[in-house]
């Protein structure tokens, strides 16, 4: 692995730019992924925040869903935030029946688990894998992890009010996912973890 890995950001829709800035801040090079050919050169892939219904729709329409699944099976490291977490989930609930995902992450994820936009929130989270400082996490129409397979490592649990014991960050090998949006806060520790995963891969 080179010192500065090339990370693709899936650029169908969503906060692509914010992920590019966060990745650049931790020393990665970035490129936008919109076609199967774009997948060939990259060392890792970020699936940004956005609308998962739309992202899935566009990935299918652009014949990108199968190449993405193949890349995942071949072991390409992937990180998904919010809609990206939904895209990586093996199983989803509260979605349109025709919504497809890339899969690869052995979790069941519930879309819009906290309610509508008025219920979106920010909060300090403990994520021991990235250090002891609390992580300011922004949840926007966010999904949550309902259940995880045995190979999945839980990185963070939200423990507040009605959302007690909610899993909001997970890792399974080279796959990483968060319900929230570290790309919106300027705290680059999650991106740093992902780039480290890519480097060690």
């Amino acid at each position: 692995m080179t010192a500065s890995p090339l990370i693709g950001v899936l650029a169908l829709q969503g906060d692509v730019k914010e992920h590019e800035l966060a990745l650049a801040a931790v020393g990665a090079r970035t490129t936008r992924v919109r076609t199967e050919a774009d997948l060939a050169a990259i060392d890792g892939l970020v699936i940004p925040g956005g609308e998962s219904t739309t992202m899935s729709n566009l990935a299918i329409r652009l014949d990108l869903i199968d190449p993405l699944r193949a890349a995942s099976k071949a072991g390409l490291p992937m990180y998904g935030s919010c809609a990206g977490m939904i895209m990586l989930a093996a199983r989803i609930t509260d979605a349109r029946p025709d919504q497809q995902t890339i899969g690869g992450l052995d979790v069941t994820v519930r879309r819009n688990a906290f309610g509508r936009q008025v219920d979106s929130f920010e909060i300090d989270l403990d994520i021991p894998a990235v250090g002891s400082e609390p992580f300011r996490a922004v949840f926007i129409r966010a999904p949550l992890v309902e259940s995880v397979g045995s190979a999945v490592e839980v990185l963070s649990i939200l423990d507040h009010g009605s959302a007690a014991d909610t899993i909001v960050a997970v890792r399974q090998g080279v796959r990483l996912a968060t319900s929230f949006h570290p790309e919106l806060t300027g705290d680059t520790r999650i991106h740093e973890l992902f780039v480290q995963i890519v480097r060690q891969h």
């Binding site: 829709q13 969503g14 906060d15 692509v16 008025v118 909060i123 922004v138 009605s162």
Partner: peptide
């Protein structure tokens, strides 16, 4: 969803929602 420290309606949450729509119609 309302934990003690969860804050709704912040500028970041409001502006961030629009960020999720970028590139879309």
């Amino acid at each position: 969803m309302a934990g003690q420290d969860a804050v709704t309606g912040t500028s970041r949450v409001k502006r961030g929602m629009a960020d999720m729509l970028k590139g879309g119609v």
